[in-house]
């Protein structure tokens, strides 16, 4: 630059002005890029099923003072349901040197993000124990470049079995849907089996990690006359609530999942964390990190609210009468 300036000193006035224009334009573009922080948003599905979660995230971000397109830019990467693509997408975001990476929607996403960078702050959102998953050292002191929000969805898998057993007090065997590719499937299965034995129940575990498997599972449950289908907590299931509700109606299967979207779409029941809260908190944390807080100083937040949704219309179609203990526990009863 000094050499360049020395040359410029010999130029005419008009040439210097022209040069100034050339020099300053790329500089101002660069400055603008530097001024606007970029959030790398890693999604396991496509934007459509993420809609309500994105809205909650934007709400949280706004609480922290950031609005997409105004003072922050969001760079989205969607795995379109193919979770194997997540690590590559995470690497892509890491290469772009985003200000903060947001990895919502389950352990897979969080793990993929963690594998991509050790320096860029990552905010995860998942329904399990991040300490057990090895994402953070402890809830109060995450330690590394990760922090985030957990919901109790994974912990309360066993409550789903309990509610189903309350609904069918006489039934002894229930079906359980597990996504074998999920990092939390093992612990959830173990918990459920332990619960079943303490309640004196038997479980039949169905593995489902693809559309055909889901279809086959419902068909099997309906044919084997199992009392009800209990879904473990897994984003793969959560994002397919609408599809699951369709299948449940088609196969006339009483089922309980983690996401309220399921009873809202015609399914029977759901019990799980409030994803809108968790995604909102994710947005708040992303904003706070952009403001300069270190992820290691931000404790992992647990969204302790768990909500029971019951769709009475679905119950009526299934020919079920809801016991008062269930109805009195329900946060929302859809008539």
């Amino acid at each position: 630059m000094p050499c360049f300036l020395r040359q410029a000193a010999r130029l005419t006035r008009r040439e210097i002005i022209a040069l100034g224009a050339i020099v300053t334009v790329p500089h101002s573009v660069h400055a603008q890029q530097k001024a606007t922080p970029v959030i790398g948003y890693l999604g396991s599905e496509s934007p459509e099923p993420y809609g309500s979660r994105l809205a909650a995230f934007a709400e949280g971000l706004a609480e922290a003072g950031y609005v997409d397109g105004r003072n922050v830019a969001i760079d989205f990467r969607w795995a379109e349901g193919q979770y194997s693509r997540l690590p590559a997408l995470a690497m892509d975001l890491a290469d772009r040197q985003v200000t903060v990476m947001v990895a919502p929607g389950g352990a897979e996403v969080a793990l993929a993000a963690r594998s991509a960078t050790k320096t860029i702050p990552i905010v995860f959102e998942l329904g399990g124990d991040p300490v057990a998953l090895g994402l953070v050292a402890s809830l109060s002191r995450p330690g590394g470049n990760l922090t985030g929000v957990t919901s109790l969805s994974v912990e309360v898998s066993l409550k789903r079995l309990e509610f189903m057993s309350d609904l069918f007090p006489a039934a002894r065997t229930f079906a359980v849907a597990v996504n074998p590719t999920s990092p939390t499937s093992g612990s959830q299965s173990r918990n459920l089996l332990a619960t079943a034995s303490s309640l004196g129940l038997e479980l039949r575990v169905f593995n489902a990690s693809s559309e055909p498997e889901l279809d086959a599972m419902f068909a099997a449950v309906s044919q084997t006359q199992l009392a009800g289908l209990v879904f473990t907590s897994d984003p793969y299931f959560a994002y397919r609530s609408r599809r699951l509700a369709e299948l449940a109606i088609r196969y006339n299967v009483p089922a309980i999942t983690q996401a309220r979207d399921f009873p809202n779409a015609g399914g029977l029941m759901s019990y799980g964390g409030d994803f809108r809260q968790s995604h909102r908190h994710t947005g708040i944390y992303a904003g706070r990190i952009i403001k300069g807080e270190k992820p290691s100083d931000l404790p992992v937040q647990r969204v302790t609210k768990v909500e029971l949704f019951i769709n009475l219309k679905a119950a009526g179609q299934l020919g079920l009468t809801m016991p008062p203990s269930l109805l009195s526990s329900a946060d929302v009863v859809i008539e």
Partner: peptide, 10 residues
């Protein structure tokens, strides 16, 4: 005599 919980089993 009775234990009810949001997370654990009743």
């Amino acid at each position: 005599r009775l234990f009810v919980s949001r997370i654990g089993l009743n």
